[in-house]
């Protein structure tokens, strides 16, 4: 069953059509990759899903809820979390605080209760801290919770961003180039981790990725975008042989030569 669907989605910037009549079905508990050359509209699509951009036309639904027109925080509360291509952490907050903020959609404490620090608030805060510590260890950052996010090394920042996204207990996780800038070892770890998120936690994963080994390794379905249009979709093995995909990546004529 499709958890996320996009129908005839259109997003324009002035005269530029960034995403054009885009249809997508992301199956529940699948790992689905969106690939395409730079400027193909992948991140624009993510921004439409998460409410950063308001599309000019079309429809996006999560579990039947229409997402278009909803504010980003509403969409997150419905169960979509994301990471960013260029890491966007709360730099001057500690690693733990970053994760604690991520849990906000599930918190109830009101302001007056927080000032009085009622029993309920104390319990909730203890749970928040415990959960944050657990998530920190889960992404392999145990012991670094009190460091400022900006002082963490690059790889750890990516993990922390993932932990923050997980803190909202999402149904669907959008990962924008999760292995960008990572070496082979780190990439392999991240790939395995993404797979575990799906296998053990049942989170549906939609990812943008440039590293084809990662894409072919973990995705069940690959969607290829070029100039805002979907040019191919299918299992990785099929996509690898698709002449239009090869053409988009390598230029006209390449496909013919490869054959």
């Amino acid at each position: 069953m499709a958890i996320l669907t996009s129908r005839k989605l259109v997003k324009r910037f002035g005269g530029l059509v960034a995403v054009s009549d885009f249809d997508l079905d992301v199956q529940e508990r699948s790992i689905h990759s969106v690939i395409g050359p730079n400027g193909a509209g992948k991140t624009t699509f993510f921004n439409c899903v998460t409410g950063f951009y308001r599309p000019e036309g079309g429809e996006i639904t999560l579990d039947g809820h229409v997402l278009i027109g909803l504010r980003p925080d509403r969409i997150t509360r419905l169960g979509i979390s994301r990471t960013y291509q260029n890491i966007r952490l709360f730099n001057n907050m500690t690693a733990l605080e970053n994760i604690q903020v991520g849990q906000d959609p599930h918190l109830r404490a009101g302001m007056f209760a927080a000032i009085a620090r009622t029993r309920g608030v104390r319990k909730e805060e203890a749970a928040v801290l415990g959960e944050a510590r657990r998530l920190l260890r889960f992404v392999g950052l145990g012991g670094q919770g009190d460091l400022l996010a900006k002082n963490l090394p690059y790889g750890s920042q990516r993990r922390l961003e993932l932990a923050r996204a997980l803190a909202a207990k999402p149904k669907l996780l959008l990962l924008d180039e999760p292995t960008a800038g990572m070496n082979t070892q780190e990439t392999a770890e991240m790939t395995a981790f993404i797979r575990r998120l799906r296998d053990e936690l049942g989170i549906t994963i939609l990812l943008i990725e440039h590293d084809m080994r990662v894409v072919m390794d973990i995705s069940e379905t690959v969607t290829v975008l070029d100039y805002g249009e979907k040019i191919a979709e299918g299992p990785p093995a099929e996509i690898q042989r698709n002449p239009r995909v090869i053409e988009a990546y390598l230029g006209r004529g390449s496909a013919a030569r490869m054959n």
């Binding site: 960013y84 903020v101 906000d104 302001m111």
Partner: peptide
């Protein structure tokens, strides 16, 4: 409190704060 964290997140990056579910 939760409120203080939300303020600081908003101070750091308003867009991302909203995207992690904070009601601006």
């Amino acid at each position: 409190s939760r409120q203080g964290r939300s303020w600081m997140a908003m101070r750091e990056d308003e867009d991302v704060a909203q995207a992690v579910g904070i009601r601006l």
